[in-house]
Simulated assay, not measured.
Amino acid sequence: MLSKEKLQRISVLSKKSKSQGLTVEEAKEQTTLRKEYLDTFRTSMRETIENVRVFDPEGNEVTPEKLRQKQNKNNRLN
């Protein structure tokens, strides 16, 4: 999770970019912060998806085989 300060800085830079433009240094900072945010988001989303189990209305597990294999592989490592 990104710190509150970094998230606020992303917002500040975004607003400034729309209103008056950014300096070269600010644009680089914005790019770095956005990349860090996306990396954090993707990691979190991947971890969430890899821990999901899917059930049909009758209660039978119908988790896709590829996902089950990934979950089994992860469980062996832990």
Rank of each mutant, 00 (worst) to 15 (best):
T32K: 15
K4T: 14
T31C: 02
R53A: 05
N74L: 08
R76Q: 07
I49D: 04
L33W: 10
K28A: 13
G21S: 04
Q20P: 02
S3N: 07
P64R: 05
T48K: 08
E58H: 05
P57H: 03
E25M: 10
T63A: 01
E26M: 03
L22G: 05
R76T: 03
E36Y: 03
F55S: 00
L2I: 15
I49K: 04
E26C: 05
F55V: 12
V52I: 15
K18A: 12
S44R: 13
N74F: 01
P57S: 06
L33M: 13
R76L: 11
L2V: 10
E5I: 10
Q20M: 11
K15H: 10
L7S: 10
Q30N: 10
S11K: 12
Q30C: 04
K16R: 14
A27C: 03
D39M: 09
K28D: 10
R76Y: 04
R42Y: 15
R42F: 14
G59D: 07
R53C: 07
N60H: 11
V62Q: 05
S17E: 13
S44Y: 13
N60E: 12
L2C: 02
S17Y: 08
T23K: 02
K15C: 11
Y37D: 11
N78D: 02
Q69V: 12
T63F: 01
K16P: 04
K66E: 15
S14Y: 13
T32L: 14
R34F: 13
T43L: 06
S14A: 13
K73C: 00
T48M: 05
R76A: 01
G59C: 07
Q8I: 10
S11Q: 13
D39V: 15
V24H: 02
S11L: 12
L7R: 14
V24F: 06
K70V: 07
V24E: 14
N75Q: 06
K28M: 05
L2A: 09
K66R: 13
E25P: 04
V62D: 06
L67I: 05
G59V: 09
K28C: 05
L7A: 03
K16H: 03
I49W: 02
S14C: 10
S19A: 14
M1H: 09
